[in-house]
Structures are given as structure tokens and as C-alpha cells.
Write a protein that binds this DNA or RNA. Structure first.
Length: 918
RNA sequence: GCCCUGGUGGCGGAAUGGUAGACGCGCUGGACUCAAAAUCCAGUAUCCCUUAAAGAUGUGCGGGUUCGAGUCCCGCCCGGGGCACCA
């Protein structure tokens, strides 16, 4: 019998499906383990070999955990709302639902071929109304909640109204947008419209005006994480800053908890660091500067992290968008300021970043340094951001490089405050040194001076300690069709939530998927897009809405009454292992944590962090191949000879190259223009050049997993992707070496079969064979737990080499179990051939016996200077010569260390390998 | 600029502070074969050298700690990723 992987893989894939082998029950006596992949967006291009890397790793771990006796939840689904399907719809008129369904079907087919152990009964798409009902539900809950800072959690909005009733806005300490304070009586006197406006400033999902990223080409707003360097992440279109009223999520209210929660997570340092940067906590002080403008006094609050440098303030700066600008512009400067604002407003974000030009204008007003009483001019400049802190700063050019550049440009004074700091060429930004020119702070180090300055400021009522976060609220509406509709209508212009019974509010049909002529979102095209006579919201939710709580839905995917039942939630709790790429560090992984914490506050889920352990699989890059064309001819030169000709490199499809050798016939067939290509060969072969590039169609380096499954089988693909290198490291795909793992599987097969002859016997294994087996068991266990899958595969190869010719059931059976997470098909087949009825999935991981793996060794006492000083362990086969030499050398070593402290020296032929000290 | 990462043969990559280069690919030679494929066996860091033995040199660079450093410490260089007028 031959190793016919095509037949074997097909057979077991359908067997698993029929027997629902991987169905997870929500009740079990076994301990639970939840393994999740970041679900894919089903694009039209299908999967390439890079996609399954993380899926294979998580599948191996799932199967391993099952062998270890866990009840494993390992689900899969699709993040199906999104831009590409919509843009395809705009071009072709095809409904995104249809495109999505087709793409999902193709993904499913490709995934099925790799033999994943998903519980497909739990599959869903985020665009299924049964699913997005719960996305809409969560939104309504956020709409109906506010954030109480005094207890640090979200609470129902009714409780806020009650508090206003009792004591007005002063009665609560809430995370909210800016607005005027009011008393209980004023609240009671407000109209319905006014009350609604006030509450909107407090809601966790709220509508508010802010500067947003507007992408004209896409016709929609984007969240901060969807913009990279001033261009949209999807499509790469320019993005501009625009003030607009949009739905937003008050993520900023959770900033401190999102930051603090990271300490309890088993994530990589780099990913935690990315989130920390994104959240951007900074500790400092708010200080009030009196500012006089045309004889009128104002109190302007600034934020600084360097309160110690207050004696070096030589000017103040306002952000152009700051509301202070209008109040603090003097009559004399009005024109100049207006001109500056207009100029600044024209620039888009990209130019602002790229230019980094120092620009600004004098406002005409002067502030008073609260400590020195000194008068300093107030300037306006775009280097100060309106959205951070208070939108106003005190400038200390001697110790802040941005202030320094500004001071130089506009000739403002620079006062150094740190002993020995030379500020003639550049500012001294470091937080070290001894303070000078700083009144009561003189003589303190910077680290002492910062708290001392803040203490002084607080004691004199000039300001207070303050922690600022960089993270902004998430813009939650998109002017697009293919997303969740908002369950919100506008009754008399007041945003009103739809009742729960109205969910899911399904997407209406529209005749076209693009915005209307007047620039309204596509949903404005829908007929009768109203609820109870009131117009419905026409924007839809962003992509991250559907992916923020999907891990909860897998626990209980068909529940019509709740996102997840309390029972299911309390059983599965949260994700034990989450595998996916780093690209979601500041998007999905922040939003999910926020969303989960919100649901936790309201008591819908029992864990406040969704993903306990997270592993980032590295990206698989493409390995492109080149042929070298002599321009103007049809002649191609092999790599080693190309320098003898004038050539240009041309990308060649990697699928017709093996081990950098070009398949000449396939090349001639590849393109009509190459049909009569000529080749200059070396040693009868055409050697291609290569380069590591992103895997993409245009570079002809895309490798489809189907191709690998056809030629080598899914088991080879799985093993090979793991063998390629460490899971978390980015690495190029190359098919070089795939033969090696394929050979390994064939070798395994031949331990069972010699052509038609069944080889397995019930003979008892030798000690050496047992030693090999137990070495393998120990190594497997350790490496899998550490996600070191590449060395695990190596360990199998070593074991098989050592066990050559051994066809004993007592050895082969445990090996099949060990290997089954990696190569489930071949092991399942051989397992059944050994006479088992049940799936290998339900076998137990073999028990590890350490005593069977200890190296044979002989212990000798070593004496010198007439005394036995220590013992040495030698390999059993070490020669007399070796031993004598080792003793001589170790005696020298012993003198260095002091012989008494040596307990033993382990020696293998030739050299001392281990000196064990007491 | 700041923060993560990583740097080891021809290639992918192994190495709790203890024989550097496991395992695989590739390459060389051999066996089997009419021949090839498949399979199996042996060799394969560099230098010196006909070869071997024996040396010497070797983990980006320069120092240090240690009986002993790819691994730990200090200072650089280079690649990959993230953040960035965030006061």
C-alpha cells in the first residue's frame, strides 16, 4: 500500500465532518480550553499560503489540548462586512451579499482541505442578521449608558438622569464631552430636545462634533487606526481633517483600565508596548495662566509634564482650532490671525506631518506666569494640537525641541534652567541635571523638581496634578452601505433608539451602492428608510463593530435571546489562546477589549479581558523569482552567467520554478510571448534569481495552499509551514525544503508498510527504542507548550531516523498520537489501520518517563594532589585516552575554581562539557 | 527622534552560561537500476593542505564579566516592525 495522501485526506476530512468529531459541548466534566483564530475577511483573491500559518498553529494546539484531556472550543467564521465587497458592488452592481457568499464558499473550500479541527456548527458571518442583531444590541446598550468615574464603570443612563434630577451636572463625576454645567432646577426646566442634547454628551455611544479623518475618495470618515501617514489603510487614498458630527464610542473613558489591564495579559511585550503607546498615558499638571487681551482677563489652562520648567516659560501657544483663539486675539492682530487660520485650515493631515514647517502667528495677548508674574506673549501655531490636553501650552524653548524651533524662528527668548545645559544650538530635552534660574527649585535634580513644582502649584491653588491619555474616542459611523445599520431614528430631530424587538434592523435594498448626488450615504437611497414615521440613521457601523464581540458569540452562536447565555459565558469565560497578526494591535484588539469591558460593567460577561494569551504569527513573505532577459530579444540568461550580458530581471511565476530551477517548458507555456524563448543555461539548467518581497499577485510569488495540497498533501503543508521557522517571526515562503517534510511522512508510512506488506508487530521494544520514544514525548510536550513548533517537527525527524526499521506497535502507536496534531490525516489513517475504531483525537497524550531518556554514563572519582576531589561523569563509550585528558584539563579548571567547590565534571569524548559547582 | 525586535554555514534555521551549526534543503560521492525516478548510505563552517591526522579561526563590530559567552553587561553598526509636533 502506498501513501496516497489525496485519498487519505479526503476520506478523513469527510469522516470528521460526518462524525462531528470536533463538536464542542457547552457542558463537560473536562476542563475547558478556548482557542481562537482572528477570523478572516473573505476577499476575492482567496487564501494564499501565508493565511493558514496562524490557523495551523492554533489547530495544532487545539488538537494537542484535546489529547491532553481538555474540552476545546475551536471555532471559525468570517468578518464579512467591509469595503472591498462594497467597492466591487459599486463597480458591478452585484449585491455585496452575493460577493461575500461566493468568497466565503471559496474560503471554506480552501480551509476544509487543510484539515482543521473547527467546530463548524458554530460558524457565522458578521453580516448575518442573526449575528449583527447583537452588534446593534451592544450599540443600543452603549447608547443607553454613561461612564461613572467615581466607581469606574459604565452605568445605565436612567441613573444619570436621576442624578441630574437631584443635583444637576455637579452631582456626577462622569466621562463626558465638554459643555456647560447646570443645576437640578435648570435640568428640570430643559425641553426634551435640550435634555437629549445634554445626555448625548454623556452617552458611551454618542453623536458629537469632532475633527475627523475624512476620505473624499471613499466618501467616508475613518477611525485613527484606519489611517496611515495621512492615507487610508484600505486603498491608500488621501485623508483630510474635517469637523463633522459623527457617532463615536467613548473609548477614552476606558483609557486607564485598558492600560492597566495589559499587565495581567499574557501577550508579547511588543504588542503590549504598541497598545501602551496608542493609549499614551502621560502624567503632569494642569496650570492656570491669567491672560489679558485688550484689557479683558481670561483664565487659560495649560497641560505640561514638565512643571519643573515653569521658570523658563517665555511664551504660550494655542492650537489653531482651540476655542481660546477667538477670545485671545486682539483687535490689532485680528487680520493676521485670520489669515494664518485660513492657511492652516487648507492643509491636510499629510502636509501638516510632512511639512513640519515652523509656522505661527502672534495673538496680540499676553499671559502671566503664575510663579514669576512675568508677562509672556501668546502665539498660535499648528504644532499644538487641539485634541490633546487643553489645546494650549506653556512654551519652554530651552528644554523642549519643538518650543526651541519655534522660539528660534520667531526670535523669542530662551532661558536655560539646567546646570551646564548648552542651548545655543539645540534644546536640552533630557529629564536630568540640576535646576538653576528656577527660584525655589534651584539645586534640585529634575526628577525631584517635577513633583516639587506640582506640589507648590497645588498648594497655591494655581493648578493640579493631571493624567492625560492620547487615545481618542472611536469614530463609529461610516458613510457606506455594507455595514450594520444603526438602530436609531430621529423623532423630531432627537436621536431615539429602536426597541429591542425591532432588532435586527436589516439592511435595506438600494438601487445603487454609492453615495447620493447630494453626498448622503447610500442608505439614503433606500425607499421608506424610516421607523414609526421617523427617518432612520443613514450611516452604517465600521468594520470593527462586528469583530469586537465575535469571540463571545461563538460560545453560544444560535442564541436568539442573548448575545451569549450566562451559562455558556460562565463555562467558556474568555479566550485562552488567540492567534493572529500584529496589524490589529491598535484597532480590533483595543476595540474588543473596550467592548468586552463595557459588557462586563453591565454584567453581561464575567471576564473583563477577552483574550488571555495572544500570539502573533509572523507574516509569510513572498519569495519572488527572476529570469534575466536580454532587452530587445527573447533570450534569457541563467543567474550565474547574467553578468556576461546586459540583462534586466523579470519576475517569473514561482509556481513554475523548483529550487530556483526554471521549468523551461512551463515557462514557454506561461506567456504567449515566451513561447519561443531561448535560454542560456549553466550545467544544463536555468538558475533563477530571487528576492524576498511582499506576497502579491503582481510579483508572481503567490503560492496557493491548494497547489501544495494537490502536490504534497495537507499534512505536508501543515508540517512544512511549522518547520519553516519560529511562529512569531516574519519569514519568506519558499518551496525549497518542502520535499524534506514530505519525505518524513513517506518514511513514517514505510514503517507500517513495505509495499503490500504490513510490517507492524507486537514485539517488545528495546531500551534504546524506548529511550528514543520518551525523549520525543518529553520534547514534544515542552516545545508545544512553548509554541516552538519548528523544533517539534525536527524532533520527529530525529526520532524516526533513530527508529529506522522499528515497526513495533508499542513504539508506533504513541508516535502516531504525538504526531496527530501536526499531521492529522496520515496519523488518523494509520491509527485506524492499527485497529482503532475511534478517532485518534480522543486518544491520550502518552505519558513521559524521564528515567528512560537519561544518557548512559559512568562516574569516576577524580583525585589530584593525592586526594579525591570530585567525581566526573563520562559517556559510557568514552575511551581511556579521553578520560585521562579530561581529568588533566579538569584538574586545571578545578584550580581556578577551588577544588572543594566542584561537585562533578561531566565529560563526553574529547572535552569537558559540564562543571557542576556547589 | 522614541519604543519594540532580530543579526549564527551556500539557504531556512538549532543550541537551561558548558562539544556552535541540531533538523531540513541544497551540493558531492556511493549503493540499487539497462537507465531514470524513488529509496538508502557516507561526506559537507572557514583557513592551512594532494588527502588525512593535527592545528588555527569562527555566531554583525569593539570592549567587559566568567574557569568557560551565540547566550550576561557596556558602547556602536545594520535589517524588520510600531509610534511620532501628544507639551
Amino acid at each position: 500500500m502506498d501513501y496516497n495522501f489525496i485519498e487519505i485526506e479526503r476520506k478523513w476530512q469527510s469522516w470528521w465532518a460526518e462524525h462531528k468529531t470536533f463538536k464542542a459541548e457547552n457542558h463537560s466534566a473536562k476542563p475547558k480550553y478556548y482557542v481562537l483564530d482572528m477570523f478572516p475577511y473573505p476577499s476575492g483573491a482567496g487564501l494564499h499560503v501565508g493565511h493558514p500559518l496562524g490557523y495551523i498553529a492554533s489547530d495544532i494546539f487545539s488538537r494537542y489540548k484535546r489529547l491532553k484531556g481538555f474540552n476545546v472550543l475551536h471555532p471559525m467564521g468570517y468578518d464579512a462586512f467591509g469595503l472591498p465587497a462594497e467597492q466591487y458592488a459599486i463597480q458591478t452592481g452585484q449585491h455585496p451579499e452575493k460577493t461575500t457568499r461566493d468568497n466565503v464558499a471559496r474560503y471554506r473550500e480552501q480551509l476544509d482541505r487543510i484539515g482543521f479541527s473547527y467546530d463548524w456548527d458554530r460558524e457565522f458571518r458578521t453580516c448575518d442578521p442573526d449575528y449583527y442583531k447583537w452588534t446593534q444590541w451592544a450599540f443600543l446598550k452603549m447608547f443607553g449608558s454613561w461612564y461613572d468615574k467615581s466607581v469606574d464603570k459604565a452605568r445605565p443612563i436612567e441613573e444619570l438622569e436621576a442624578a441630574f434630577e437631584r443635583g444637576g451636572s455637579a452631582a456626577v463625576d462622569a466621562a463626558c464631552s465638554d459643555g456647560p454645567a447646570f443645576t437640578a432646577d435648570e435640568w428640570k426646566g430643559f425641553s426634551a430636545r435640550e435634555k437629549s442634547d445634554v445626555l448625548m454628551r454623556y452617552r458611551i455611544a454618542y453623536q458629537g462634533e469632532s475633527t475627523v479623518n475624512w476620505c473624499p475618495a471613499l466618501g467616508t470618515v475613518l477611525a485613527n487606526d484606519e489611517v496611515k501617514d495621512g492615507f487610508s489603510e484600505r486603498g491608500g487614498h488621501p485623508v483630510i481633517q474635517k469637523k463633522m458630527t459623527q457617532w463615536q464610542l467613548r473609548v477614552s473613558a476606558y483609557a486607564a483600565r485598558l492600560l492597566e489591564g495589559l499587565d495581567r495579559l499574557d501577550w508579547t511585550d511588543s504588542l503590549k508596548e504598541m497598545q501602551r503607546n496608542w493609549i499614551g498615558r502621560s502624567q503632569g499638571a494642569e496650570m492656570v495662566f491669567k491672560v489679558e487681551c485688550d484689557g479683558v482677563q481670561h483664565d487659560v489652562t495649560i497641560f505640561t509634564t514638565r512643571a519643573d520648567t515653569i521658570f523658563g516659560v517665555t511664551f504660550m501657544v494655542l492650537a489653531p482650532e482651540s476655542e481660546w483663539v477667538e477670545k485671545l486675539t486682539s483687535a490689532a492682530q485680528k487680520e493676521a490671525v485670520a489669515a494664518y487660520l485660513e492657511e492652516a485650515g487648507k492643509k491636510n493631515e499629510r502636509e501638516r506631518i510632512a511639512g513640519k514647517a515652523v509656522t505661527g502667528v502672534f495673538s496680540g495677548s499676553y499671559g502671566i506666569n503664575p510663579l514669576t508674574g512675568e508677562k509672556v506673549p501668546v502665539w498660535i501655531s499648528e504644532y499644538v494640537l487641539a485634541g490633546y490636553g487643553t489645546g494650549a501650552i506653556m512654551a519652554v524653548p530651552a528644554h523642549d525641541s519643538r518650543d526651541y524651533a519655534f522660539a528660534r524662528k520667531f526670535n523669542l527668548p530662551i532661558i536655560p534652567l539646567i546646570e551646564g545645559a548648552d542651548v545655543s544650538e539645540e534644546s536640552f530635552d533630557a529629564k536630568e541635571g540640576i535646576m538653576v534660574n528656577s527660584g525655589f527649585l534651584n539645586g534640585l535634580s529634575v526628577k525631584e523638581a517635577i513633583p516639587a513644582a506640582i506640589d507648590y502649584i497645588e498648594a497655591h491653588g494655581l493648578g493640579r496634578r493631571k493624567i492625560n491619555f492620547r487615545i481618542r474616542d472611536a469614530i463609529f459611523s461610516r458613510q457606506r452601505y455594507w455595514g450594520e445599520p444603526f438602530p436609531i431614528c430621529f423623532k423630531d430631530g432627537i436621536a431615539t433608539p429602536l426597541p429591542f424587538e425591532a432588532l435586527p434592523l436589516t439592511l435595506p435594498e438600494v438601487d445603487q451602492y454609492k453615495p447620493t448626488e447630494t453626498g448622503e450615504p447610500p442608505l439614503a437611497r433606500a425607499k421608506d428608510w424610516t421607523w414609526d414615521g421617523a427617518p432612520l440613521e443613514t450611516s452604517t457601523m465600521p468594520g470593527f463593530a462586528g469583530s469586537s464581540a465575535y469571540y463571545l458569540r461563538y460560545m453560544d452562536p444560535r442564541n436568539g435571546e442573548a448575545l451569549v447565555s450566562r451559562e455558556a459565558d460562565e463555562y467558556w469565560r474568555n479566550v485562552d489562546l488567540y492567534i493572529g497578526g500584529t496589524e490589529h494591535a491598535t484597532g480590533h484588539l483595543i476595540y474588543s477589549r473596550f467592548w468586552n469591558k463595557f459588557l462586563y460593567d453591565l454584567g453581561y460577561v464575567c471576564e473583563d479581558e477577552p483574550f488571555r494569551k495572544l500570539i502573533n504569527q509572523g507574516m509569510i513573505q513572498g519569495r519572488s523569482n527572476f529570469v534575466y532577459l536580454v532587452p530587445g530579444t527573447n533570450k534569457f540568461i541563467s543567474l550565474g552567467l547574467k553578468d556576461r550580458y546586459e540583462t534586466i530581471p523579470v519576475h517569473v511565476d514561482v509556481n513554475i520554478v523548483r529550487n530556483d530551477r526554471l521549468d523551461l517548458e512551463a515557462f514557454r507555456r506561461w506567456r504567449p510571448e515566451y513561447a519561443d524563448a531561448e535560454f542560456v543555461l549553466e550545467n544544463g539548467e536555468y538558475i533563477c534569481g530571487w528576492a524576498i518581497e511582499k506576497m502579491s499577485k503582481s510579483m508572481y510569488n503567490v503560492v496557493n495552499p491548494d497547489y501544495v495540497c494537490d502536490t504534497y498533501g495537507a499534512d505536508t503543508l501543515r508540517l512544512y509551514e511549522m518547520f519553516l521557522g519560529p511562529l512569531e517571526q516574519a519569514k519568506p515562503w519558499s518551496t525549497d525544503g518542502i520535499d524534506g517534510v514530505n519525505r518524513f511522512l513517506k518514511k513514517l508510512w514505510r514503517m507500517f508498510w513495505d509495499r503490500e506488506k504490513w510490517l507492524v508487530t507486537d514485539e517488545a521494544p528495546t531500551p534504546a527504542e524506548l529511550k528514543t520514544l520518551h525523549k520525543l514525548i518529553g520534547k514534544e510536550q515542552e516545545d508545544i507548550e512553548n509554541f516552538s513548533f519548528n523544533t517539534t517537527v525536527s524532533a520527529f525527524m530525529i526520532a524516526l531516523n533513530e527508529l529506522q526499521g522499528c515497526s513495533k506497535r508499542a513504539i508506533l502507536e504513541p508516535i502516531l498520537i504525538l504526531l496527530s496534531p501536526f499531521a492529522p490525516h496520515i496519523t488518523e489513517e494509520l491509527w485506524h489501520q492499527l485497529g482503532h475504531e475511534d478517532s485518534i483525537t480522543w486518544a491520550s497524550f502518552p505519558e513521559y518517563k524521564e528515567e528512560l531518556t537519561v544518557e548512559n554514563s559512568v562516574t569516576y572519582p577524580v583525585s589530584f594532589n593525592g586526594k579525591t576531589r570530585f567525581t566526573m561523569d563520562f559517556a559510557a563509550d568514552a575511551s581511556r585516552e579521553t578520560i585521562e585528558k579530561a581529568v588533566r584539563e579538569s584538574a586545571q579548571t578545578a584550580r581556578y575554581v577551588g577544588a572543594q567547590s566542584i561537585v562533578k565534571v561531566i565529560v563526553v569524548p574529547g572535552r569537558i562539557v559540564n562543571v557542576v559547582l556547589k
